[in-house]
């Protein structure tokens, strides 16, 4: 038995058949369609706008990608976003910016560590653990903030968004650097590959001597910390911390990762796919806004695109396995 007749595919063929390539195609088609529908879409100012709007969800989606690659899910990112925003605002009243930001990011990481330990060591279901953490996080952010927005933040905080390099705003530069670092980490390091292996077949990874427990916890820590980083950029723009901030952010982040081709069973997906997923989501929102479509319709549009993207992917895979 067991005759294999796989030929070596050409490099071009590999690229053309990769998921990222199809997603890039989808993003380009969307961009062209939107530029036809709205002349304003392709202006430099609007493109910067799209990038700017991608920062918050883009940062959170990196952490979500780590988590989903292990086969988990993190529903608590929105709540951590809100809570860490409040923590940052409170810390800024006492400490300088360079100390306050690490406190907020540390708080996010600690919350992630809490979820990660419960999931990886005690074997609880990620969905349930992070659902609980979401409720606790949101509740704490209301309590700490006294149920109101905290303003009066130091004006210097704005520098992390409004300084620029070569004409590119700092927050967009940070996003690009973050994606490059995350891509390198996931592709070329022991930790990154272990995260893939855990999601693909944790038992085999463990039997091969990989530190599966550590790398099952790490993604939740990264996800929590990055939620705090994201809220830092958000606060620098809005200059006030709302305890309700980041409501339903987890859904946007999960949607971006899934549109980017990651499997919710883990092991499959890429950081480039996630970036494209983020851009596709933001472009749709932006385009619909430009065209004056009611914001109430945007949910339907984004939901349909998620389902269509998954369906197309499944149909393509069906064809290729038959």
């Amino acid at each position: 038995m067991a005759t294999t007749d796989t030929k070596r595919p050409s490099v071009l063929n590999t690229i053309l058949h990769s998921l990222e390539f199809r997603m890039l195609g989808l993003a380009l088609v969307l961009a062209i369609a939107l530029s036809l529908l709205s002349p304003y879409f392709l202006t430099q100012r609007n493109l910067f706008n799209v990038m700017d709007q991608s920062v918050v969800i883009g940062i959170v989606a990196v952490g979500m990608t780590f988590v989903i690659l292990t086969g988990g899910i993190d529903l608590s990112v929105g709540a951590i976003f809100g809570l860490c925003g409040v923590v940052l605002a409170l810390a800024l009243k006492e400490y300088p910016i360079v100390l306050a930001i690490p406190i907020a990011v540390g708080a996010g990481a600690l919350i992630g560590l809490f979820s990660g330990v419960l999931i990886a060591i005690f074997g609880l279901a990620p969905f349930v653990v992070t659902l609980g953490v979401m409720a606790i996080g949101r509740s704490l952010s209301f309590i700490l903030s006294g149920q109101r927005s905290l303003s009066g933040l130091p004006p210097d905080l704005q520098n992390i968004v409004y300084s620029s390099f070569l004409g590119i705003p700092a927050n967009v530069l940070f996003l690009i650097a973050l994606y490059a670092a995350a891509w390198l980490y996931l592709t070329y390091t022991k930790g990154g590959r272990t995260i893939y292996a855990v999601g693909s077949n944790a038992e085999a990874a463990r039997a091969a001597g990989l530190s599966t427990t550590f790398y099952s916890i790490l993604p939740y820590v990264v996800s929590g910390a990055l939620s705090a980083v994201a809220v830092t950029f958000s606060l620098a723009q809005i200059m006030s911390a709302d305890p309700l901030a980041g409501n339903q952010l987890e859904l946007d982040a999960i949607a971006a990762v899934v549109i980017g081709g990651a499997s919710l069973y883990g092991g499959r997906g890429s950081i480039i796919g996630t970036l494209l997923g983020v851009l596709i989501m933001v472009m749709i929102r932006n385009g619909l806004n430009l065209m004056g479509v009611s914001p109430f319709w945007q949910g339907s549009a984004i939901g349909s695109i998620i389902i269509l993207a998954l369906l197309a992917e499944r149909l393509i895979n069906w064809r290729s396995t038959r």
Partner: peptide, 14 residues
Amino acid sequence: VAEDRRAQNIVPDL
């Protein structure tokens, strides 16, 4: 080398 190749040895996505 564990008994069940698919479940205990192979990491399919790598």
